[in-house]
Design a protein around this nucleic acid. Structure first.
Length: 275
DNA sequence: CCCTCTGTTGGATT
DNA sequence: CAATCCAACAGAGG
């Protein structure tokens, strides 16, 4: 499920569990979860990665985990750990490894371990030198969509071009952290059709969108922090205004929500009030 | 039981 | 450039 809000929740959890504590043990249950750089493929596993991570982390003190877009960067003494949750990754704290646990980190003075759980295995961790951690975290990414959100003109400049706005929003090199669900939701909030070419949006539309993106992300982080929402496939009610709601009435105007594939991903919008 | 379809990630290929 | 495929798996539906 991870988009930026889930990554931010994971970052806060890791900070609560590990920050300022010394690593006791690294438990690599799936060596292919440790990759050379951030890659979605287990075949990009770092040879000897399990030993390398243990050597680098055990005995080192965890710093404060940082987030940029959907990545986490976490310093341990001379080493840095990059984390990407992929499509199904999350961190949980347990005594015993849950199903699909890939990597566990235990700390002195804390019970159990923080387990990286990732059924679909697109997620990974990668080791970098601590002095290169910030650069590696930011490599190839635009500003963070929540913590460094551009204003209307800034967003217009970053996303300039002929692409449909929904596709441009998913371009992490332009703006980091907006994924499929929140792109769709932010466009509904801003009253903009996902098909609109960036070059035909006016200043007022850019201003609404620049406000809607961090508002959407902040709302989701807060709702998840308060345990008020669960994700689409977790059996709970769909908390979103348009995502996965094709055919149901728009909350704002009552028209039937439409759906299509845009940028290779499922897209939902209200054909009546998203001009 | 088995087959097909879909998916929240990102990157390569066409 | 936009569409398609791919990675690896779970879960739903027929």
């Amino acid at each position: 499920m991870p988009e930026l809000p889930e990554v931010e929740i994971a970052r806060r959890q890791l900070a609560r569990w590990g920050e300022g504590r010394r690593v006791r043990e690294v438990i690599a249950r799936d060596a292919a979860a440790i990759r050379r750089g951030l890659s979605t493929r287990p075949s990009d596993a770092l040879p000897g990665g399990a030993e390398a991570v243990a050597r680098a982390l055990v005995g080192a003190t965890a710093g404060a985990p940082a987030r940029l877009g959907k990545r986490i960067g976490w310093r341990f003494g001379e080493a840095g750990l990059l984390v990407h949750l992929g499509m199904s990754g999350k961190w949980v704290r347990r005594e015993e490894p849950p199903p699909h646990a890939r990597l566990g980190l235990s700390f002195h003075d804390v019970d159990g371990a923080a387990w990286f759980v990732d059924p679909r295995r697109f997620g990974c961790v990668a080791l970098v030198p601590a002095d290169g951690l910030d650069a590696a975290l930011a490599d190839g990414l635009g500003p963070d969509a929540l913590d460094a959100a551009p204003d209307g003109p800034g967003l217009a400049a970053r996303l300039a071009g002929r692409r449909p706005i929904k596709v441009a929003l998913l371009d992490q090199a332009r703006l980091a952290g907006v994924g499929n669900i929140h792109a769709v939701e932010a466009l509904w909030r801003a009253g903009i059709s996902p098909h609109t070419p960036c070059e035909s949006l006016d200043a007022a539309a850019w201003a609404r969108l620049a406000q809607a993106i961090p508002a959407q992300l902040r709302w989701t982080v807060e709702a998840e922090e308060a345990d008020e929402i669960a994700y689409v496939n977790e059996g709970a009610a769909n908390p979103f205004a348009v995502y996965a709601r094709a055919g149901t009435p728009c909350r704002r105007c009552g028209a039937a929500i439409a759906s299509a594939i845009l940028g290779g991903r499922s897209t939902f919008w209200c054909p009546a009030c998203q001009g």
